[in-house]
Design a protein around this nucleic acid. Structure first.
Lengths: 335, 335
DNA sequence: CTGTTAGCGCATTCAC
DNA sequence: GTGAATGCGCTAACAG
């Protein structure tokens, strides 16, 4: 059916190797024979079989990406950065969407049998000790995005500092009763997510530094998402002494807080200040104050690191920390 | 390094073929030898090479998906449906993100050299006549999602009817001055998108049926996105005789309309009714009236069709039309 | 510079 | 039931 390299060689009256050399842009071919081969290729509408090529060379020019809940705006934006950088380097992207803890484990495990791809990028999922070991033993190039692990390479941000940034912004505006709303314990355990927890650590740190009293009841956790956050925020706001500001671990959860304040006829920011995290697309639309992190860039950097690894060059700082910044908009105000 | 099928055969004291048969669940193996092989596999931690397997069998168990602007909420949701269905069938998903007309053409062309995948899914991009021909000649299994083309298979919705649904909703509430806001001519041409245009056709049809006068100045086009839609909507609303309702070709653009009304101190829905299309996630949050289409399902159906095609069974109605419905929320009211 | 050769790891014939 | 042989299309290492 389709022409093979052998057909081309025959038509051009050359050997197999020569055709292969032309295909791979080897300089060891005379211009004359090169054109002859090129003509034959054109005439036969020949296109080299990628599978055969990968099989023979051992390189697939493909990268696997394991992304939890890849419909979340922040994840999609990272994916976009990944796709962009990968494509610029001639690589393809295979996506694995993780929405259950079982699939998480399966994906992380499967990465070690690096067959179909030259390496993998893992978003937000922190490999556990045993998994790190497995990955190392398998010798698979892996890049971590939005997380880090001992002995692994990747790119992340300082979530603790981010949490501090957010809470200090609130403290600076006179707030003392500040609530925190983060991911559920179950989620954190199942997926081994770390950012919500770290942001909370920053929250605690900032509060502590300001000598603000910590109230356990001001900290709530629920399954990531708007609706759950809405419920939790409502609980917070109906406390006898409700917080005057809420720091949500993500913009999506901050949206739930906004809904809750709407439910309770609370004006934002007059009655309640709200701050999120990530600076996803809608944050600007909503005028949401938030902590911005470079999502697209995290994808690009992840690719750079991974391709380096594939090429045998470990990145110098094993884990790169990207800058973050506070973006003050309309949902926070002095109390 | 990694064990091969040969190592397993040697350790189990059997021939290559037998190991292969065990791997492929062939019934032609005695239970005794099967266990012996299985043991050897376990001991060597053997895992068959997927590339070698694809190479030999000709099947890659991989599907390519060409998605324009895959960060758009509607596209992501379709992708989720695709990934889900693909994974359920043991297939992997390679994603190509199209954001320029050049890349669109390149991707559509590359699909015809179906190497790395067993077939392709194309979202929202309608192949042109020449491209359809190329695809047919190449004999690549292709499924279209959110569009249709003569002689091709896929799943879509009736966008014209959707436009009618939206506008009739407005007409029923007494609106006569109804604006339309859709994708720019350039985008439509570059990518060969069809939905915005079709929805507009429905708009015109509904207006015509209601004997409402058509005003060319009520129809505006801009690059898909919130900010552009915001500008266009502002223009519409500052007309000497502004529309009392606006139908946006997508929820994202409807968000721009909402911004514009905020800019101009117009209350929604008291002063202006707004209706979108798609029913993406935030639509509910915004209380946006819209036309809902089954995004996730479109992905699943697309996969079913494609896998059928790969298996040699063309779908019975070549193009499947999914149901849509109007979702009345708070941004539309009687005038 | 160029032609030839030897596998890459597996599925799939075949004989036995 | 099972083992041995052939080839998928290409790259890489070699000899010329």
């Amino acid at each position: 059916m389709a022409a093979t390299i052998r057909d081309v060689a025959r038509l051009a009256g050359v050997g197999l190797g020569t055709v292969s050399r032309v295909l791979n842009d080897s300089p060891l071919v005379s211009p004359a024979t090169r054109t002859r081969v090129l003509d034959a290729i054109a005439e036969l509408r020949y296109s080299p079989s990628q599978i055969a090529r990968s099989f023979s060379s051992g390189k697939t020019l493909t990268v696997s990406v394991i992304a939890p809940f890849f419909t979340r705006p922040s994840v999609v934006e990272r994916l976009r950065g990944i796709e962009s950088a990968l494509h610029a380097n001639g690589y393809s992207l295979v996506v694995f969407n993780v929405e259950t803890s079982a699939r998480r484990d399966a994906c992380l495990h499967d990465v070690s049998r690096h067959d179909r791809s030259d390496g993998a990028l893992i978003i937000s999922l922190t490999p556990r000790a045993g998994e790190v070991q497995l990955l190392r033993d398998a010798g698979v190039p892996v890049g971590l995005i939005d997380t880090s692990a001992e002995g692994m390479y990747g790119v992340c941000i300082d979530d603790i500092y981010g949490g501090e940034l957010a809470v200090r912004h609130l403290l600076d505006r006179g707030h003392r009763r500040i609530g925190f709303l983060g991911d559920s314990e179950a989620e954190v355990q199942d997926f081994n997510f770390t950012s919500s927890r770290h942001r909370q650590l920053g929250y605690l740190k900032a509060l502590d530094a300001a000598d603000a009293t910590l109230r356990p009841e001001y900290q709530r956790y629920g399954v990531h998402g708007r609706s759950e956050a809405r419920l939790l925020a409502r609980e917070l706001l109906q406390l006898p002494e409700p917080p005057t500001a809420i720091f949500a671990a993500s913009d999506t959860q901050a949206m739930g807080v906004l809904e809750a304040s709407r439910d309770l006829q609370l004006r934002v920011p007059e009655d309640l200040s709200v701050i999120g995290f990530d600076d996803i697309d809608v944050a600007e639309y909503l005028g949401l104050t938030t902590v911005r992190q470079p999502l697209f860039m995290s994808g690009q950097r992840g690719v750079e690191i991974l391709l380096g690894l594939i090429g045998g060059e470990p990145p110098d700082p094993p884990s790169q920390v990207l800058p973050i910044e506070l973006v003050a908009r309309g949902t926070t105000a002095p109390m």
